[in-house]
């Protein structure tokens, strides 16, 4: 993501959208929800791109983060903003249970994570004393007033999630730039080559899993305080896995901007168009898009567009850069 693009993105998200849509609770809420998906998509892409790990289990991190934060604020009086961080930490801790799966190669890791996500979902339903069971938790505290700004409004919540997404992007950017990022990038196709020069491959993967879980968990926590309600089927819903994967694949998961733009586009189109055309089962189109993208262009829409618009010479470079 270059500077011009980042600046344009920041201006649109921080200035244009709040001032044009700020009064419309429905629309600003919609964009905020899209940003929730975007944040998870970035976290998913971080793990997929820099860790080389495809996860079908991010719903688990989302759910654990949500419940951690909700329970801490409701039962232990922890301030909401602190609880958002705790939600992330909770998700990271839950990811520790998944670490044995890091020994497994690609597809087996994906399947193991899917199984873990199911286990967490069942546990959430069963642990009624903590999660309220299938009945759910009601009246989770809203985001508070802080430095004179009421973050409990739809617009306030939008600003908070926007900040969270920007923080995840900045973190991703710096990890990618670091020597860790270089080593992780290389591990993708040449793990032996990296290990033989001393890269502790498993340790790096563990770090990426922790970071990705933290990001997803704190976003789950934000969501809990944004909608003030939780039940296991919702918090651990497969949607929290499906949407981000579609967004990241659609936008190109090996880029920084891809997952964010993909999420904004996918979520808004899904809610505004697909949902109105077919009120039930509109995720069908998401599934079809996912399948289509994997066949046509697994590295996202960007390479297709570049192919059409860029002069032929530059194609190779554009694909190689994964910018």
């Amino acid at each position: 993501m270059n500077i011009k693009f980042s600046a344009a993105f920041a201006i649109v998200m921080y200035l244009v959208i709040p001032f044009t849509l700020g009064d419309n609770n429905y629309l600003i809420g919609l964009v905020a929800s899209a940003l929730i998906i975007a944040g998870i998509a970035v976290a998913w892409a971080l793990l997929g791109n820099l860790g080389g790990m495809v996860s079908f289990g991010h719903a688990a991190f989302f759910g654990v983060g949500a419940y951690t934060s909700a329970v801490l604020t409701m039962d232990h009086g922890v301030p909401v903003f602190v609880a958002l961080v705790m939600g992330g930490i909770g998700a990271s801790i839950s990811s520790i249970f998944m670490m044995p799966a890091l020994r497994l190669r690609g597809p087996y890791f994906a399947l193991a994570i899917l199984a873990y996500a199911e286990i967490f979902k069942i546990l959430a339903v069963e642990a009624t004393s903590i999660t309220g069971g299938a009945g759910g938790l009601l009246s989770i505290p809203t985001l508070p007033v802080f430095m004179g700004i009421d973050f409990g409004t739809k617009l306030g919540g939008y600003i908070v999630i926007l900040n969270i997404v920007c923080l995840t992007l900045i973190t991703y950017h710096f990890i990618r730039k670091s020597t860790y990022g270089l080593a992780l990038k290389a591990m993708h196709d040449s793990e032996m080559a990296t290990r033989i020069v001393g890269v502790p491959a498993t340790y790096l993967k563990i770090v990426m899993l922790l970071v990705s879980a933290f990001m997803t968990g704190s976003i789950g926590a934000f969501n809990a305080h944004y909608i003030n309600f939780l039940e296991p089927d919702y918090a651990f819903s497969g949607s929290w896995t499906i949407f981000p994967i579609v967004a990241a694949i659609f936008g190109g998961y090996r880029t920084l901007s891809g997952p964010v733009l993909g999420a904004l586009f996918i979520y808004l189109v899904d809610q505004l168009v697909f949902k109105s055309v077919m009120p039930q089962g509109h995720q069908l189109i998401l599934g079809a898009m996912l399948a289509g993208m994997i066949i046509l262009s697994p590295s996202g829409l960007l390479p297709i567009l570049t192919k059409f618009f860029a002069p032929k010479k530059n194609i190779k470079k554009a694909e190689g850069q994964h910018a």
Binding site: V54, Q283, L284, G287, L290, I294, I295, P298
Partner: peptide, 27 residues
């Protein structure tokens, strides 16, 4: 039709097809 890394990409592809079928049945 998957061109590269079929082992992993087929997971995502069939995951997508599963979503299509589930939602088709739902509709």
């Amino acid at each position: 039709q998957i061109k590269k890394d079929r082992e992993l990409n087929s997971l995502i592809l069939t995951f997508g097809l599963g979503i299509v079928l589930t939602n088709g049945l739902l509709m």
